[in-house]
Amino acid sequence: MTAPDGPASAPARPAEATDPAVLELARRIRRAQLRRATVTVALGGLLLFGLPVLLLLAPDLAGLRLLGVPGGWLAVAIAPYPLLAGLAWWQLSGAERDERAPDGTDGDGTDRDGTGRRDDEVGRLR
């Protein structure tokens, strides 16, 4: 944030028509990624917003004790973290697969031009 970040002077305006085939590929990837992200966010939302409902509606369930500690406390203090981590893992591997899938090539992970610098700013399109 302290740096001249991105196109500070002129706004990025990739005005020229880009390769229609590339744009079509990008549309496909975006759709696939959006679908997956929606599922992940929905599952995460279900966990975060559903668990409080469960704890409210079923106080007996929350009263169950595990090693002497009330289950409701563990359901808040411990249980969400492995679930969130598992969801994160699922989203990550899926998103990387979606990126590779369309034409079987690698995603943006490799530095193919070998200069060690990557100009992946939007403004590059100009």
Binding site: P14, T18, V22, L23, A26, R30, G107, D108, V122
Partner: peptide, 18 residues
């Protein structure tokens, strides 16, 4: 939205091939 808007957004999802 300006005509370049869609391409600008799509670029963000594109794997960095040249």
């Amino acid at each position: 939205a300006p005509p370049w808007a869609e391409a600008t957004m799509l670029r963000l999802h594109l794997t960095d091939k040249r």
